[in-house]
Design a protein around this nucleic acid. Structure first.
Ligand SMILES: [Zn+2]
Ligand SMILES: [Zn+2]
Ligand SMILES: [Zn+2]
Ligand SMILES: [Zn+2]
Lengths: 158, 158
DNA sequence: TTTGTTATGTAATAATATAACGCCCGTCAA
DNA sequence: TTGACGGGCGTTATATTATTACATAACAAA
């Protein structure tokens, strides 16, 4: 991801648990009767390895050792992974991030640092209040996007 | 806007109060020492007249009676209007909508109907809880995006 | 007027995302 | 075994959304 500052270490080394997460994902798909194909697995691997929000075209560029993937290959995989709850789309960044929870199929909120670009997945506080507020006008909520922009602790200390 | 259904009247006639809103906007800018130029006013007029979320390129296409505006003209105006609190950007639609409140410079939440495409601006419930949830990790919130997708009352009754 | 600042005009391009089509491959029933 | 079907993928092309860059114009202050 891009950054608004240069005062932090932005190296994101490969999370140690990527292989375990890939295995979990394969199990999850098998349980659901869905196919975890190689394109889907590779896409998920790249999102996991990013260690934070990653753009679709960064996945596309990294997909093959030599040369990029075709956009539909990656967009299809991203859609699938999102439907499986393995990743989330971050609307205000046009980016994707691996789900940080193990109970998939939830709607998550995000804290997005405008300085270092990192994201933190949080439970949306008071979902019931949002649904009640909507329900007062007869509106039925199916999905909530909640993204808070600001500065993370590290970035607000300099 | 596009619609997922054809069972409602989707005509949005020009809201009767557009001239008054334009005048208010001019006064607001004058008070703030900002210039409400013709490009900005025309852009605001088109967003108001849309009567709901409108895409940037729809503004671009409608900007001149004969032929489209150049994208930067409209994107600049949209940015200005958003900074003035006259319009809001809806991230999950890549669209813009006129602010429904008279106290500008707030962050608003939206209920977005997936069927008829209409939006309702609401106060974000429990902003304090979101800020508290963020603050627990040292995160300082500057702006909250909250967009609930679902079905409005009219659309869920058929 | 001069000068600095803000806004606009214009061309080009970047960045994000989808449509459309045909092929392959696995499943399943005949 | 064979054929029909459906899902996933490869490929090309295109659609949609947004910005960069630089020149000019309008404005405000000195
Ligand atoms: Zn999650
Ligand atoms: Zn940060
Ligand atoms: Zn508003
Ligand atoms: Zn509706």
């Amino acid at each position: 991801m891009s950054h608004a500052c240069a005062h932090h270490d932005h190296d994101h080394h490969r999370p140690a648990d990527t292989p375990a997460r890939l295995a979990e994902a394969e199990a999850l798909c098998a349980d659901a009767g869905e196919r975890m194909t190689s394109a889907r697995l590779r896409t998920y691997e790249l999102v996991l390895d990013a260690g934070g929000p990653i753009k679709a075209y960064d996945v596309i560029d990294r997909f093959h050792p030599d040369g990029a993937a075709k956009p539909p290959t990656v967009y299809r995989a991203l859609s699938f992974l999102e439907q499986m709850g393995l990743i989330h789309r971050i609307e205000s960044l046009n980016a994707f991030v691996a789900c940080g929870a193990h109970d998939h199929k939830h709607t998550a909120g995000f804290l997005l640092c405008d300085c270092c670009g990192r994201s933190v997945e949080i439970a949306i506080p008071n979902v019931a209040d949002i649904e009640a507020s909507a329900g007062a006008t007869g509106f039925k909520v199916s999905h909530i996007t909640m993204e808070a922009r600001g500065l993370c602790q590290a970035c607000s200390q300099e």
